[in-house]
Every structure is written in C-alpha cells, then in structure tokens.
Nucleic acid binder design. Structure first.
Lengths: 336, 336
DNA sequence: ACTTGGCACTCGGCCGCGTTGAGTGCCAAG
DNA sequence: CTTGGCACTCAACGCGGCCGAGTGCCAAGT
C-alpha cells in the first residue's frame, strides 16, 4: 500500500511543513528532496497518502499538510534520532550542574527544557509515594496545633499543620516524634499510612487511637496533595506558534489546570522511551498540541515525568532528544 | 483649565471605552450620560482634553480613547470605590476559608484574584526577612551532609542542603541543633545571620568558626533565594484582551521573569492603599499593561504584596476593590 | 504497471474601486 | 459659552477582476 517512495514523500511533507509552516506542493518536494521522479508522480503518491488519511489539503489548489495520523507515522517509523549538538550538551550540564537542592533542580530543568525546545516545558516533582521517609519532625505551634514536617530521600520537604483534639505536653510530643520516626523512616510513603496502625503505645495510651487516625489522615492528604506539584516554563513560546493554534486560550487554560498536566505526565513514566502524544490523542484543551514526555529518576526507576507541550507542527526528532537528554541528566542528579 | 464638565466627559470616555473597547464619540456620550449639553459642546471639551493629552484619536474621524495620562487622572480623581457585591464577598470567604497551610493560602488567593478580576493575578509569598524563626531542624543525610529546615511564624518552611568540610557525630549535631534554636528562635530572619556570630562553644570548640561561617552563608542565601517566590494565575485571561495587547509575548515573558514581578510588587507594600501603575509607568515588557497592587499582612504590617496585571483598558474601581479585599482577607488569615 | 508531460480547472489572496457612515472641526447665530 | 449646520476625512466593507500555485486527470511513453 505504502511503498518506500510514498513514505519518502510523507517524510518530505512533514519536514518541509515543520520548517516553513506552509502547505507543501508537489513541485517543492522534487526541488528540495531529490527523489528522482517528476512532480506528477509525487502528485499521484500524495493522492493515495491523502486517501489513507496521512495528509490533507487545507483547501483545493493548496499544497498538503500532515494530519495527526501522518505525524504519528512519521514519529513511529520515519524519524531519525537527532543527536544533540555539543553546545546543547554543554548547556545542559552547565545549567543544571549548579543546582543546590530539589526546588532548584526542578526549576532549572524546566527553564532549560523550555529554552532548548522553544516550547512550553513541564516538570513534575518527584513522586512522594515512591519516595521513602528520611525524617519526620514535629514542631509545637500552640498547645494543640502541631506542624508536621516530612523529609524524603529525594530531598522533598513537605509540611502540614494539624489540629489536635487534645493538648499535648512536651514529653508526649518527644515520644510521638520518636515513635513516628522509628516506624516510618525508610518506608515508602504509600505504605506509611498503613504502617501507622501498629504504632507502639506511649506513656499516654489513651491518646493512641486519636493520634493514629489523625496521622493517617494527614499523611494521606499530604501525599495526595503533594503528588500534584509541577513546574512550568516557556508559556511565552506559545505565542510564537500563533499560526498553529488559532486560539491559545484553551491551551493556556489546560496548562494552568494541574490535574490535566498530571494526567498527561502521569501516564508516561518509563524512563527508557520517549512518549509522544499527537493532537487528538491528548485530553480536551490540548487537542491542537503534541506532548513529548518521558519518566525520570535514578537508574531506570521512575520517580516522575517531564516533557514539553508544543504545536503538532513540531520538530519531533529534536524535541524528543532534548527531552530525553534532560530527563537523563536530572535522573542522574537525583541519584546522588 | 479643566472644569467639572470636562472631567465628566473624561470619566464618560473612560467608562464607556472600558465597557465597549471601542473609541467613544461625542454623540454616544450625550446619549448614555445625561450631561444636559449637546454633542457639539462635548466636542469642544474633547478638543481641549486632547490638547492636554488626556485622550487621543486612533485616527481622524474616529472617537476618542483615554491615554495613560487620562487613566491616571481618572484613577486619582474621578473613580469611586466600587464596593464588592455580597456574592463576591462570600466567594472570597468560602474560597479562602478552607486553606490548610501557607502554600494553600497563597495558591487559593492567586486563583481567586484571577477569577474575580478576570485578569492575571500575582501573589508574593510572605517575606522571610520580616518573619521570625519558629524552629530550626537539622537532619543528617550522610556523614558530612546536613539538611537544614527552617520554620517561620508565618508558616513558611525552607530547606537547604549543606556540605560540611568535616564529619559530624550525632552528639555534636544535637548540640548544634540546640544552640541554633536557642540563638535563633524568635528572631527576625534578617538579623539571624548576625546573631550567629556569638554562638556558644560546644563540646568541639574547634568546629565553631567553620560552623558559624557556614551557617551564616546558608542563612543568607536561603533568605535571599526564598524572598523571591511568587505565585501566578490566570495567564489565560490575557488572551481575552487580545485587542488591547497587539502582542502578548512580551507580557508573558515579563510575567515569567520573577525578578520583574518582584520588583513590581516589592515597591507597593503599604497595606492601606492600593497602588496603580499605568502603562508606561511600568517596567519594560509591561508598558502596555496596568498593575494594581497592595501590601498585605496581619494588622497594618506588610509581609509581602499581591496584585493583578491587566490591560490599561481596565475596570479600575472594580479591580482595586477586589485586590484590596483579598489582601485584607489574606492578611487576617496570616495573623492567626 | 508505473511514470510523465500536458492541460483544464479550482480557489484563496491581492489589488483597486466606489460606497457608506461615524465622527470631527469650524463657523455663524443664539 | 452653547448650539445647530455643514463640509470634510477616513476606516471599514463589499465587489469584481486578476493572478498563480497547485491539483486531478488523461493519454502517451517506457
């Protein structure tokens, strides 16, 4: 059905259209890409490509542009990995190298990615539920308000104020802190809540049930809420693609809606393969965009995902390699 | 020079232009605002208003639109405070009421403000240097890496990893933690670094100089870096004003540049008066916008600022009262 | 069976043109 | 100082014609 030359034609259309953002005609193709055939032949091929749904005509007597399906085929079978330039590699290293802590790593990564790809970059914070507890700290605010601070091995620090139904003296506080740490340190957070059920009795056993239930709730909401953190950069780059999105508004709205972003990133957390979602494969609001994402983490574990959002008319090979390179580098940083 | 009627005319022009976003002509004015004079008279007034630079004509044979100077006069002398509707008051209370901690307060405020004003909202985190230390926690990560966690009375929790030149045993760590807390708790952060110079000697006095200098540096960078946190929401609202900004890009870029935002907000931290910057009064990139901002904090102290960024063609009275109301409410929340 | 040149056809983009109408500035009279 | 009248300007709009890129189809060639 689709012989090699037809695929070459499709590739030529995608590449040229990405470059010029104008519908590409048969004549242009034979001029730029030496296929060794005449425009008429290319036209015939384009007709079948159109029948199969890989390309489309904005209107009669215009050239062709790729459809989502066409981009999909291009990404899956026709694109070559485009290695990063040494300058880009150096930029990644020098830019991310100076990060002092987790916030810094995330913020730098997202800015870097936006700059490299000239698109909107999104970086998810390392998942809490897949992290382990390094330390739990309790700070007394008032007689019956405590601040719980949770520190994980990935460097995240989460906090939550909790209201106690009863006053707590300092001794009980120390005890509670101690037993919390003994019970939780080293555990994965997603099992932390469960582990609390067998908290040892302290000097005031009458507190036990209320404390465990309280802590369980707190931990759960903490994990759930904190799971949902993402950093975003490069929104201004959207405007450069004004031609591609007739209306930017829904895109901006979708990007501000963290839930949407998390769903987007959450599904792609294999650190070994870049995932590309094209056009309609995306959730509402991002139907006119493509999303390139990948998981990251130390080694081949995945703690979270990062990626970029751009027009379907996108330099897929370049974007994919930039995303992968940044993910690897960030993963390595977190490993140490 | 400018009698009352001319001011009325200016007010009419500003109000109508804000509502319709179309140049307003003499006839429209006498129709909508019963000034009791004829179009010809209004025309004469408009001519002098134009001479004085308060209004301008996009082109001959079009109506007039306010200039930045016109808006300025309107804001300073012609606008009435527009009280919030009960529905809006209720919205603020119910939306902000459920906040569980500082992050939550800031995030909710910024979203609320964006929704109320239908513009881009910006909320600065409470200043660290004006907060006092509630608790300092040290967590040992490896033999010579520590995590410093700083908790303030405004509920902020800041963290920083520090590399020690020497290994530290657990006893010294406890001692250090104790003396840090004794020295710092209750102090303002901007004097915290200084206070460290007379840290009492511990069991290993040879550590003292290196520890103090280390802590000083850490505290300083911590304060400096953390000072610069802002939350932003409603970027999508920019697109609704596409008519007002021929190009959104520089605006989006300026909004992503935290430094610009902080400068913007940093200068307006009197919690008693709303500050309005119009058009050219703003820094590069925001010259086509107006910024309405105010300080907030418990009582009449100012911990930080919040505000909105929108087109110069903006409902100033409404925006100003929304900004002030949210600031008051947030200030009250932080007081408790 | 595929390729190719030729050819008629389509249709969006552009230019020039006249029309319309909102809005102004000016002036002379009230 | 205000007002009605009046000539003038100019953006917006619609219309028609032209141009050219690009196509689809077909008949001839390999």
């Amino acid at each position: 059905m689709l012989d090699d030359r037809k695929l070459d034609v499709l590739r030529a259309i995608v590449e040229d259209f990405v470059r010029t953002s104008e519908p590409v005609g048969s004549k242009h193709i034979v001029e730029r890409h030496h296929l060794g055939v005449s425009p008429a032949t290319v036209r015939n091929d384009m007709a079948t490509l159109e029948d199969e749904g890989y390309i489309a005509q904005p209107h009669t007597s215009a050239g062709r542009i790729p459809t989502d399906k066409g981009y999909r085929l291009f990404v899956d079978r026709l694109s070559q990995v485009k290695p990063l330039s040494p300058a880009e590699r150096r930029a990644i290293e020098s830019f991310l190298g100076g990060a002092v802590d987790l916030d810094d790593v995330v913020n730098r990564s997202v800015k870097l990615l936006a700059q490299l790809t000239r698109q909107v970059a999104v970086v998810q914070y390392p998942s809490l539920s897949r992290s382990t507890v390094r330390h739990v700290e309790l700070v007394q605010l008032t007689a019956n308000r405590l601040l719980l601070v949770l520190i994980t091995d990935t460097g995240r620090v989460e906090q939550r104020v909790l209201e106690l139904p009863v006053a707590l003296d300092e001794g009980s506080l120390d005890e509670l802190r101690g037993s919390l740490n003994r019970t939780l340190v080293g555990r994965h957070l997603d099992e932390a809540a469960k582990a609390l059920t067998n908290l040892p009795d302290g000097s005031r056993p009458e507190l036990r049930p209320v404390m465990t239930s309280l802590m369980t709730v707190v931990l759960e909401t903490l994990v759930e809420r904190a799971e949902q953190r993402v950093a975003l950069a490069g929104a201004a780059n959207l405007t450069a693609h004004a031609l591609d999105f007739p209306v930017i508004r829904p895109v901006l709205e979708a990007l501000e809606e963290q839930v949407v972003l998390l769903k987007l990133l959450g599904e792609a957390n294999d650190p070994t393969t870049v995932r590309v979602r094209i056009g309609d494969e995306n959730p509402e609001g991002l139907r006119s965009t493509s999303v390139v994402s990948i998981g990251y983490g130390p080694g081949s574990d995945s703690l979270a995902s990062l990626g970029v959002v751009g027009p379907t008319r996108m330099d897929y090979p370049g974007t994919m390699s930039a995303v992968r390179a940044v993910a690897r580098y960030v993963g390595d940083l977190l490993g140490s």
